[in-house]
Amino acid sequence: MTRLDMLRFARRVVEQQATRQLALIDRWIADEEQREAQRRAAGARKDRAAAWLIQYGLNRTNADAMHVGDCWAARKTGRCRVAGR
């Protein structure tokens, strides 16, 4: 094997390693972009308060009360659902 053959071999090895590392970094970037999009979506859902909430009784079938979306009592009971149109 000549010196030129060894240099070409070394170049191919470095090129393969660099390609693998770039693919790995691209995968990390895509994963982080997906996590960031999920965080933003969760924040948007959290910021969007319901306009009205229906509070259900202990048996969870009978409606007991209506609450404004940011009512402290509705958060306290934990038995409320968002009222649809």
Results as ranks from 00 to 15, higher is better:
D26F: 02
E36A: 12
R35S: 09
Y56S: 01
N62L: 14
R48G: 02
W72N: 10
A49E: 12
A42T: 03
Q17M: 11
R3T: 07
G69N: 02
I25E: 10
R3F: 06
W52F: 09
W28I: 06
G43C: 05
V14E: 14
N62F: 04
L24Q: 14
D47Q: 13
D31F: 01
A23S: 13
Y56T: 04
C71G: 03
I54D: 00
A30N: 05
A44D: 14
T61Y: 03
R60W: 03
R81L: 06
W52N: 01
L24S: 13
Q21G: 03
D47P: 00
G69F: 00
A49H: 07
T77M: 02
Q17F: 05
R12Y: 05
M1D: 08
T2I: 10
A10R: 09
Q55K: 14
R39M: 15
D70H: 06
F9E: 15
T2K: 06
L22H: 10
R35T: 08
L22R: 14
G57A: 14
Q38K: 10
A42F: 02
W28R: 11
N59Q: 12
V14Y: 06
L4S: 11
R27Q: 15
E33Y: 02
E36P: 00
Q16R: 12
H67L: 04
Q16D: 14
R8D: 06
H67K: 08
Q16H: 11
T2D: 13
I25H: 05
A63V: 11
R20Q: 15
W52R: 01
Q17E: 15
Q38W: 04
N59G: 11
I25F: 05
R48Q: 14
V68H: 07
D47A: 15
R27V: 02
M6N: 05
E33R: 15
R85K: 11
A83D: 01
E33Q: 13
R79V: 02
L24H: 11
E32K: 13
R48A: 15
N62A: 14
Q55M: 05
Q38H: 12
R27L: 12
M66W: 11
M6T: 02
Q17K: 08
A83T: 01
R35A: 11
N59E: 14
T19I: 10
A30M: 06
I29Y: 03
M66H: 09
R27A: 10
A74T: 01
I54G: 00
T77I: 03
H67V: 01
G84T: 09
V13D: 06
A37N: 04
V82G: 02
Q21A: 13
L24E: 14
T61K: 12
D70L: 07
D5Y: 03
A10I: 10
D26Q: 15
I25W: 04
Q21H: 13
A41M: 09
G69C: 04
A63C: 06
N62W: 01
G57Q: 04
Q55E: 15
E33I: 10
M66I: 12
T61S: 09
T61N: 08
I29V: 15
I25D: 05
L4T: 12
R8H: 07
R81A: 05
A49M: 09
D31I: 03
G78N: 04
A41L: 15
D64T: 08
L7V: 09
R8V: 03
G69W: 00
L24K: 15
G57T: 07
D31A: 07
D5T: 08
D47T: 06
A63S: 11
Q34R: 07
K76S: 09
V68L: 12
K76C: 02
M66Q: 07
